[in-house]
Design a protein around this nucleic acid. Sequence first.
DNA 1: TTTCATTATATGGTATGCCAGAAACCACCG
DNA 2: CGGTGGTTTCTGGCATACCATATAATGAAA
Lengths: 228, 228
Amino acid sequence: MIKAQLEIQPIEEVQSLKSRTYEALKAAIGAMKIYDAGAELRLDERALSLQFGVSRTPLREALAQLEQEGLVRIAPRRGIFIVRKTKAEILEMITVWAALESMAARLATEVASDEEIAGLHTLVDTFDSDALEGHVGEYSDANIRFHAAIIALSGCKLIAEITNGLFTHVRGIRQRTIFEKDRARRSIVDHKEIIEALETRNGERAERLVREHTLKLRQHVEQFVQLD
Amino acid sequence: MIKAQLEIQPIEEVQSLKSRTYEALKAAIGAMKIYDAGAELRLDERALSLQFGVSRTPLREALAQLEQEGLVRIAPRRGIFIVRKTKAEILEMITVWAALESMAARLATEVASDEEIAGLHTLVDTFDSDALEGHVGEYSDANIRFHAAIIALSGCKLIAEITNGLFTHVRGIRQRTIFEKDRARRSIVDHKEIIEALETRNGERAERLVREHTLKLRQHVEQFVQLD
DNA sequence: TTTCATTATATGGTATGCCAGAAACCACCG
DNA sequence: CGGTGGTTTCTGGCATACCATATAATGAAA
């Protein structure tokens, strides 16, 4: 049957200024190197409203949402400040990540199809053996996609949502996380084990491997990353 | 040295109308039986601003935060609606809860003091044996406190925070969750086992027990609670 | 009587102006 | 020269007016 229907696509839903401002602010904060010494952490409502070309009202609503999300702190009549996460808070985020992703792995062994699990190989095998000499940056991206993929395979939207929120916060310090070659190599080994556990539908093992893998990162950050 | 200084106490920090409105709205929504058929799910900005005695601006900022939190949905020029969680979403929340609380139990075995762990007994032993005939309601409260206590013992503020957020959503359907006597009885047995695992610093076991305990609740809700 | 087009109204979206408190600045006094 | 008190300015909080659109109401034509 020939498909001759109109390709209906959702109407160009021009979002409200509030939500667009929210997105723009979030992106801007994410791109900002807020952990550099002397970074400007203060935001000015009126200046922002000029830069974005909107009035203060939608801007303030966007800021209220960002405050709820924990990205900024609004001090009455003092200023609006980008929140710098402490090292302890970062570690807690990684801990929560470990809990959620390990649960996701367990779920994945129950609900994901063989094909879906097999798809994980493409995110790991590319960096097989010792081909990651100068590709640590690329690997870092693939690494993130690997973990996101496991979470997607769990079918649990909420885990994906919370995890995304955490990632927003951690993104800022990723530049400080040195993914040295050796760590990357060991990481790949871990990933392969995880895939194997998923393929054999070994939920217990998959859960444990993912948890331990992420807790390794936690320990690494605790040991080597300096923030405050 | 005689202490003759002024007893300085922090000045009555009157919160902003925005945050007070936020709290009031959140409480009001929580108290509302939103899962009853025919419940009014629509909110009216102007009506609310009259009821609260504030203008629409702080009210809208509070609503923006509630939207971020997922409690309401703002449909442009259509209305503001309290979000009714689907059964699938509730199940996901319980799943996340299981992941987080089991991680909390594991952490608790590492960081909590013996005294803190011993304190859990008071939340369980009260309902020992078969003394919970007509006290299912009380037990339900103690049950919640027990789980909150474990999370507190983990020392992880973020787990507590996320868990609280989930609880806000689930509170609305708790009236529908029939904690029948038998379930309560088995629940108490589980709790005692969990305490024992914590006391013996058996992180693996504590984690598993908490996870399985919460997943039992998940299965119970999946099987017996009707929402849609 | 039914249907459709037009108009009215309701509701959220946005802009703007004023207010109050906090910080910065400055002058005066010791 | 240093500190204290007052004044100015800067900044977020709030109220209000107006706008745009979705929905309801209305009435005319079939």
